[in-house]
Nucleic acid binder design. Structure first.
Lengths: 89, 89
DNA sequence: TATATATTTAGATAATTGTCTAACTATCTA
DNA sequence: TAGATAGTTAGACAATTATCTAAATATATA
């Protein structure tokens, strides 16, 4: 998996709610329902944020029954920031 | 100098024109006039991008006569991305 | 002082964003 | 199969953004 769109990734990282979502997913996968208990926004808004993070390839989704487990895509995450730092050496 | 606002910094980095400006400033300082020769946007638009980069503390400005020399704030730049990576270890 | 140069500010406009409620789809279970 | 649960999609709305042209500010120079 690779970085698809740097602008998309930085834009995804520019929102504090989305950065908090990534931090929640740092240790383990979570469903939108579980994530929603940590945030004071509606589930559709959370869903929207998850779709942006997914579009930026910063998280992955695994469906199990009715549930969807979202996980941090650590590889792409490091790739994005490290590659960007490379460009500024 | 420190990171003031992570959202502001990532937002600044989410625009390709602004990333290109940072790359131009990687090696040396430049004035808006010189920078403008590399971009196909109006000078007011360029000025706007520079003000956002400055607000994000990613560049600094030094006035000399009528000219303003903009420089990459490498320290904050590395600080932002490295500290952010730290949070995701 | 008048004019030219460098850059920003003001104001307008179209596009994008984050949020909401309501409605929909998919899956599970009694 | 009916109802409950998990999550997304649709549509609306206010706020923000990137861009432009026109005007203003600041400095240098003839």
């Amino acid at each position: 998996m690779a970085i698809r769109d740097v602008s998309l990734a930085f834009k995804a990282l520019s929102d504090p709610t989305r950065r908090d979502i990534l931090k929640k997913l740092r240790n383990r996968s979570m469903t939108p329902g579980e994530l929603s208990t940590y945030f004071s926004i509606s589930k559709p808004s959370l869903s929207h944020h998850l779709s942006l993070l997914k579009a930026a390839n910063l998280i992955t989704a695994d469906k199990e029954g009715q549930k969807i487990y979202y996980s941090l895509n650590a590889t792409v995450f490091y790739e994005l920031l490290n590659n960007f730092l490379e460009g500024f050496k």
